[in-house]
Design a protein around this nucleic acid. Structure first.
Lengths: 313, 313
DNA sequence: CGACATAATACCCCTTGAGTATAATTGTAA
DNA sequence: TTACAATTATACTCAAGGGGTATTATGTCG
């Protein structure tokens, strides 16, 4: 498959007519027909219904059309962004983040950064905490927002906040009768669902370690790939799940209770390379400091321990 | 630009070595060098620093590398999804939505649909309300979630809920002293920011019409492209902005007050083609009915009029 | 500085995309 | 139903360009 084939197919799908599409694409009609055939051959799927005038799209073709439009748009953006960066010699700030920070301050941070530094290109990449460390060292990202402590001497970590943990409980079960914080001990003998299954060690192990440290043994532990699935299983009464408090808003058909206990928190951590002299690292810290001073909703005392980033004193 | 060039570049960027990359790509080293040169020529930007061993990426190259990875991944997904749909003869449910529904029930709806119908492919496309009507008629989408009433006889509309409107007010201004609902009349003589600038008519006109209907004349109206910008300007004390209540959570550094008044609401509307016999239309309604019965947080009485979708009685 | 690793260049081949002419198919109107 | 207009597929040819081999140029490290 080839971008040319995508462009050709989009032309035909839009015009619903090979001849006119060929004119717009500045080629003759036969090569256009052949390219579309080649595309269909490669996919092993018919995209167009030709024994009909005007030509119609199959279900697969309809799907392929919308996606092709998106891919072509993406390629255009990529070309433009690369030109901008290359020609103006301005630089790129690449930020890795774990999904859960999307429910906290990340979107707002990125918006503020873009606003404050129109001269640099900001790129955000979703990746798990453990993947962020090698990504930083290889230069694939410059800043990371994750949830795991690490021990790599090449990467600095700064704990931004300690978010309290919450237990998701199926409605209409005994534990869901109360809304008060739940002692960790109450999880003994319960079925537990943890995520993510990969990569390990990850947030799942943080939770399991916390329980182990309190001598709590769940009856059964089921691992799933992502939080959505985990909460789905909770709703289906398959078990309980421990989540960062900010993830409460993801589902409303389960019951939530804060987890009560010494270290029943999950940190949000900023990573960057040691000795990274880029002024943007400081800018990021500066903006974070401002944001924390505004006391945003995701920093509510109810769902966070009263700590502040070390640089925000 | 060509997918092959992207694959080649990704190979080189990953290996940081032309020779090894060429081996992995199953071609000889010289053609690889040439393709990368062609790519750089077309972009007019150097992606690699060659007078260094191992080869390093330029800033532009670093950006291009991450984006190329994403594009290639996207293409792979597209190929797989198209094959699935084409070979299994199963169909595609294509859903258009306005951005604001992302803060309501849309993510949950899509998740539930995917779960309930693993046999169909669900595609979601962000598009403005007015674009959804032609998209429905052309078959580009099957279901739309928008905020505007329309008068096209080929498209059915079902009002799902009437969301109350909220005024975003700069902090530390007189109107921000109180948190009680604000009468529409209070907007007289205020500077107003509306969005989106395009396409018209749109949500901006809904707001302006509402004010006009109450004989309220703002001092000045500034149009911006999207809500993020609008709220940014509010925070910068440029004026006030009327938003659907669910959008409150987007920014915490402005003050919010509900708008009080007869028709101070914005509907969330489900569109579909008249006479669409697909069973999935009914399934969507069924799932929506269930979701509304669960009383999710975005349906709180505070931010919605006490209406229910006509099919959910 | 010299040996080695590695990228660029020169040159050739042949795959493959594009053009022209024409056949086949579909839709429509008499 | 048939004939015609519109439109897509096929056959054949040409040539651009992607890829291979041999060789040169450049950078790295002992």
């Amino acid at each position: 498959m080839d971008l040319r084939q995508l462009r050709y197919f989009v032309g035909v799908a839009r015009e619903r007519n090979f001849t006119r599409a060929a004119e717009q694409l500045n080629i003759a009609q036969p090569p256009l027909s052949r390219q579309i055939q080649a595309l269909e051959d490669e996919l092993g799927v018919a995209l167009l219904i030709r024994n009909s005038r005007p030509v119609r799209l199959t279900e697969a073709g309809r799907l392929f059309y919308e996606q092709a439009l998106q891919v072509l748009g993406r390629v255009e953006q990529m070309r433009a962004a690369t030109r901008r960066v290359g020609l103006n010699q301005n630089s790129v700030l690449s930020i890795g983040f774990v999904a859960s920070t999307l429910y906290g301050g990340l979107p707002s941070l990125v918006r503020k950064l873009r606003h404050r530094t129109p001269d640099i290109e900001i790129q955000v990449l979703e990746m798990m905490s453990v993947q962020q460390i090698p990504a930083l060292k290889e230069g694939r990202i410059d800043i990371g927002f994750g949830r795991l402590h690490h021990s790599d001497s090449g990467v600095v970590e700064i704990v931004l906040r300690e978010e309290r943990l919450t237990v998701a409980i199926p409605k209409d079960t005994p534990l869901a009768q109360d809304s008060a914080p739940l002692p960790i001990g109450a999880l003994t003998g319960q079925k537990l669902i943890v995520y993510p299954k990969e990569p390990r060690p990850g947030y799942a192990d943080q939770v399991l370690n916390l329980l182990h440290g309190h001598d709590v043994r769940p009856a059964e532990v089921q691992e799933v790939r992502e939080i959505q699935t985990a909460l789905g299983l909770v709703a289906a009464e398959t078990g309980l799940c421990v989540i960062p408090s900010s993830a409460r808003q993801m589902r409303s058909d389960v019951h939530y209770r804060l987890l009560e206990g010494e270290r029943a928190t999950s940190p949000v951590i900023l990573y960057h390379r040691v000795g990274d002299t880029s002024p943007y690292i400081d800018l990021v810290k500066e903006v974070i400091r401002e944001m924390y001073a505004e006391n945003p909703p995701w920093l509510s005392a109810e769902h966070n321990l009263p700590t502040r980033p070390s640089f925000a004193e």
